[in-house]
Design a protein around this nucleic acid. Structure first.
Length: 812
DNA sequence: TCAGAATGATTTTTT
DNA sequence: ATCATTCTGA
């Protein structure tokens, strides 16, 4: 969370800006340029196939690169940047390159560094949407009504804040959980909606119809706290760009090239942000050199606001856009690609890519499907297979188990512990999200930013100081009355008789401590200061006295926290880093099997991949089907596709007949995705037929891909290829989120009438309307209050207000 | 203020 | 079944 004390000059980081640098004088990418002079083709282009090369050298104009799994996407992106630099068309600071994760940004930086030799330092605009958003916002904070040293709140802070607001509204915070409202706000912000933009139905659905008011109150509170949540890091810049065309124009001049990774994962807000920067109606700021790279078949984040439509609409947004498909796969065997390709062909509405490989080795194994009685046997069998591979000399690092849901991990962990097999779990609770780390961070935040009330509330009574609810309430009230931060209020209250002597003393101690630490901020090295804070506050001692099993680990984590601060300039710098980069690196040295969810496996590859739990209800997940119907099923199928295409050599799929879910044993059906695999590339394991009568007959008999050419999806994809943008995606009815009219077309006719189609928001008229009298099997009769998509809010006569799915409701 | 009891929710995850 | 959060009574 936090800050930046330094003043920020507008364009601090380089030379002139808009003027294209001279080729010879740029001093960038010297090595690449040297290579360029020696041979006619720069050597960084050497190892690329024709499509990849095309994607690299087509630097001018809009370009969409549809890059299938394992087709060298990152390589294209990094080489493209190297090429732009080497050809002298832009300074590093004139390239905007956005990724979704810090990991991707880091990787890109490294790889460009290898190609170009160190000039990456000068790429200030390579980063995640959020880190670039912060950078923009620090420069123009005042245009968003905050100061440039604003605090960035994490989800934990946000939930506590919202809870306070809900209570302040006099609402029951049990009936209206803050967590739920936080995710609603998140959803709105993903769509770029401010309080006044949200649909009436949404506004009604929360807090007895006070959703809009609460959202507004939340935004107001953020402003008072001089704080932003993650969504604001995108929304504020969008509003600044809209309201201050002069500011926007500066960036138009600045960013000569825009590159976007994982374009299929962009949400509506990110899309609006990009489009503002990329579309330049009637400016003298040059062409729209935007290059988006993505794969519609790997879009698996629809549930958190990603809009595949963004990728489907690219050619419409940027007329004259070139589309390049990367379909040559360098990762997997033909069997794996055959299985994955046949599976994904069951989806509609694809842009149509078919991965192929030249590799043809008769020894390549088919994709194996295995059956097991229950999840325990599944874990045991996978463990055995792994041990066998290990005996054959395979590295554990080359193997991964990819599960649909994290509860599946435990059984594998248990088994591997018994076997003494090294494993590592990727994902899961992250370092900076741990309780003790957050507490420590709250202390640090208070020292750097004394007005951070949320931080103070977190630790004012941790360790216990006898400052309970009543004291905090008093502090709150006083702070509110005087319109000052809580710490300042505390300072004042120490001098009055309002508090009991004991609380007053405790409060006095807290205030004195913070004053002292703030005094040390400039003079003491930050790691030392951090230690001092944790010691003097009694926080370390609190855990030392704790007899519970976790305590030693927590102390260890605190030490690790201090150690990780060493790499930073100051406490402030460290806090800023942590607020945006929540991950801590893993131990790479150990040879271990990776266990992770399919979602976190995207972008990775392993020689051998195990895919357990292919059962109806788990995969595809029942909830995805219930909540998003066909779209949900297709997303699950893409997830299966991602899973399969992670494998380089071997892929083992498992399903069981019995699985324990929420403590109850349930008998399960094999996943429909198994039916969608082609016989030619799949083999049923030895346990075949022994359980549940599962045999080859279940697979698609057809030749690989053969019947997919006849499917609606394929036909649609074909028609889309030629007649790029018309009916398929363009005119789909959806609610309009915004309309940016660059009415009069620019010189090149680049008019975009820019309606945003949010397809994933179901706009099919519901068969119900608010006020309708309905019946629910479990809750009985009630009246509809609000409708959002297929979810209805209903006041039941007996059961009270509930949110239920339309499918479970009948008209009375 | 705290420990033990009751309650409820339990896909996926980034920033 | 299990976990986390919240409530209740001492």
């Amino acid at each position: 969370m936090i800050h930046h004390g330094d003043d920020i000059p507008f364009f601090d980081d380089d030379e002139p800006g808009p003027v294209p640098p001279r080729r010879e004088g740029s001093g960038i990418a010297a090595r690449a340029m040297a290579a360029r002079r020696e041979t006619s083709v720069p050597d960084y282009l050497g190892g690329l196939n024709p499509e990849q090369r095309d994607a690299v050298v087509t630097t001018e104009g809009p370009l969409l690169v549809l890059a299938g799994a394992g087709t060298g996407k990152t390589r294209v992106l990094t080489t493209r940047i190297a090429h732009i630099l080497a050809s002298g068309n832009a300074y590093p600071s004139q390239i905007l390159a956005v990724t979704f994760t810090n990991k991707a940004a880091r990787e890109m930086k490294e790889r460009i560094g290898v190609l170009v030799g160190g000039a990456v330092e000068g790429m200030p605009w390579l980063g995640t949407f959020h880190s670039i958003g912060v950078k923009l916002l620090r420069r123009h904070a005042e245009l968003a009504g905050i100061r440039s040293d604003f605090t960035i709140l994490d989800t934990d802070d946000v939930i506590r804040l919202i809870k306070q607001l809900i209570q302040a509204e006099g609402l029951d915070d049990k009936r209206w959980p803050a967590r739920q409202f936080a995710s609603m706000i998140d959803g709105w912000k993903n769509k770029g909606l401010t309080p006044k933009d949200i649909p009436e139905g949404d506004a009604r659905a929360f807090g007895n119809g006070r959703g809009r008011k609460l959202y507004q109150a939340y935004q107001d509170r953020l402003k008072t706290l001089n704080a932003c949540d993650f969504g604001d890091l995108l929304l504020h810049p969008i509003h600044i760009f809209r309201q201050h065309p002069d500011v926007l124009k500066e960036y138009h001049k600045r960013f000569r090239y825009i590159l976007v990774d994982e374009y299929q994962d962009t949400n509506t807000a990110q899309y609006m942000w990009l489009r503002l920067l990329a579309q330049r109606p009637g400016h003298d700021t040059g062409p729209v050199n935007i290059c988006c790279v993505g794969d519609d078949d790997q879009s698996i984040y629809g549930w958190r606001g990603a809009e595949v439509d963004n990728i489907l609409r690219f050619e419409k947004d940027f007329p004259g856009a070139k589309v390049i498909r990367l379909e040559r796969n360098y990762r997997s065997t033909a069997h794996i690609l055959g299985a994955a390709g046949h599976l994904i062909a069951h989806n509609d509405g694809r842009l149509g890519k078919t991965l192929f490989t030249d590799r043809s080795d008769p020894d390549d194994a088919k994709v194996q499907v295995h059956a097991a009685w229950d999840s325990e046997e599944e874990a045991r069998a996978v463990g055995e297979e792994i041990e066998q591979l290990q005996r054959r000399g395979e590295q554990l690092n080359d193997m991964a188990i990819l599960v649909r849901a994290s509860f599946q991990m435990r059984e594998f962990e248990d088994r591997f512990v018994t076997l003494g097999l090294n494993y590592r779990v990727i994902g899961g609770p992250r370092f900076y999200e741990r309780l003790e780390i957050r507490d420590a961070m709250a202390y640090f935040r208070m020292v750097c930013q004394p007005a951070d009330d949320l931080a103070l509330e977190r630790i004012i009574n941790t360790p216990k100081r006898g400052l309970g609810e009543a004291s905090i309430r008093k502090l709150h009230d006083h702070a509110r009355d005087r319109n000052i931060p809580m710490l300042a209020a505390a300072r004042e209250l120490c001098d009055t008789d309002e508090m009991k002597p004991k609380a007053r003393k405790a409060l006095y101690d807290v205030v004195t401590h913070f004053d002292r630490w703030q005094g040390l901020l400039e003079t003491t090295p930050h790691t030392e200061l951090a230690e001092t804070i944790l010691d003097e506050s009694g926080y370390t001692e609190m855990w030392q006295n704790d007899r519970s099993a976790e305590a030693p680990g927590r102390l260890e984590n605190l030490k690790e926290l201090i150690r990780s601060m060493e790499g930073f300039e100051s406490l402030r710098g460290f806090l800023e880093h942590v607020s945006l980069v929540m991950d801590a690196e893993q131990n790479e040295d150990l040879d271990a099997v990776s266990i992770m969810t399919l979602h976190s496996a995207k972008g990775l590859e392993f020689k051998t991949v195990f895919l357990p739990g292919w059962e109806e209800g788990l995969f595809p997940h029942q909830r995805a089907l219930d909540e998003s119907g066909r779209a949900g099923l297709e997303e699950e199928r893409r997830l299966a596709y991602v899973g399969l295409t992670r494998a380089k050599r071997n892929c083992h799929i498992w399903f069981v007949s019995n699985r324990r879910i929420h403590g109850l044993w349930q008998s399960t059906m094999p996943s429909r995705f198994l039916d969608e695999l082609p016989t030619d590339h799949v083999e049923v394991g030895e346990t075949e037929m022994s359980y549940g009568g599962y045999g080859q007959s279940r697979f698609d008999r057809a030749e690989p891909f053969a019947n997919s050419y006849g499917t609606p999806g394929w036909k649609r994809a074909q028609s889309h290829r030629s007649d790029a943008t018309r009916d398929n995606w363009g005119t789909r009815s959806g609610h309009q989120v915004e309309r940016i009219g660059y009415g009069e077309s620019g010189p090149s006719g680049k008019t975009i009438e820019g309606e945003l189609v949010a397809r994933s928001v179901e706009t099919t008229p519901s068969r119900f309307a608010p006020g309708d009298r309905v019946f629910h099997m479990k809750f009985g009769n009630g009246n509809i209050v609000a409708i959002e998509g297929n979810k209805l809010t209903i006041d039941f006569d007996k059961a009270g207000r509930k949110r239920v799915l339309e499918g479970f409701i009948q008209p009375v």
